[in-house]
Design a protein around this nucleic acid. Structure first.
Lengths: 143, 143
DNA sequence: TTTATAATTGAGTATCATTCTCATTTATAA
DNA sequence: TTATAAATGAGAATGATACTCAATTATAAA
């Protein structure tokens, strides 16, 4: 998926929701899909501010919410009090391994776990909507 | 494990750490092992305050940390900005299913997932220390 | 048992990410 | 071009948790 396609998808989504297409919203989308991954709101705010578009922290938070709500981004809670945002497009579902020493984030995918999860939910007649699966420890480089 | 045994274990742990045995610390332990599970700090604070021992929020937070550090309690991050604490004694390792509607917390155990997790970590030469595995959705009663 | 003292406590303040408020600005439909 | 509802931004509010420091207390030693 090209960035142009993404951009127009985002504009479509905004229209569909009755939201306006503003330079700030476009800038947040562009910053997020740069695919540096796992960005903090403050990060995104600073990057946009430094580069070109005038934006406020409030608008960054608001736009990140829109991105999450419309499936363009995923919001991660790594337990340190600061949310992270990653682009959701083109990236298959994955979970995260976080280094307790250097903070590095490694993505992992495991279909077996996904399957077992679903079985567990089913067994409890629980309608599974999302999940968080994070492994914390010390990465290869930090040992 | 009786509560008396637990109490004396806690006292031993405090001594071992060079910490003093205070009524406030004992009260926090007692409140946590009541096994209502998944207690918020504010909960614990109110319960102790209402019943008997004079205690402050600060001391509750400090003591909960001591309990976690010494393996008497586990701290949960459910993504809503308020930590939960559960007694760790006698309870086998488990993860949590959280109802997005009513907030109910259901515990689940799955050894297969634990095993796969370890394999994933090993594969990345990652030294696994803790993990978070939470399933969010709608519980049986809320459907 | 008393004393000395370092640890603990509590009240209130600080912090920090995030959300809210509301006056001003702007995108967009007509 | 205009009208207007939505969006924005600056700063204040929020809420959980951590910090500060003077007063209190547990405990080891006398």
């Amino acid at each position: 998926m090209t960035n142009n396609k993404l951009l127009s998808d985002f504009k479509d989504a905004l229209r569909k929701e009755g939201l306006k297409i503003t330079p700030q919203r476009i800038a947040v989308l562009e910053e997020i899909i740069k695919n540096k991954g796992h960005r903090e709101s403050e990060d995104v705010y600073m990057a946009i501010k430094t580069r070109k578009t005038h934006v406020s922290r409030a608008t960054v938070y608001r736009t990140l919410d829109i991105l999450v709500q419309n499936g363009f981004a995923r919001k991660l809670n790594l337990g340190d009090g600061r949310a992270r945002y990653e682009p959701k497009i083109d990236s298959p579902h994955h979970d995260h391994m976080i280094c307790n020493n250097c903070g590095k984030i490694i993505e992992f995918v495991n279909h077996e776990i996904e399957k077992i999860q679903e079985e567990i939910a089913k067994h409890h007649q629980f309608k599974l909507q999302q999940h968080i699966h994070q492994l914390f420890g010390i990465c290869k480089e930090c040992q």
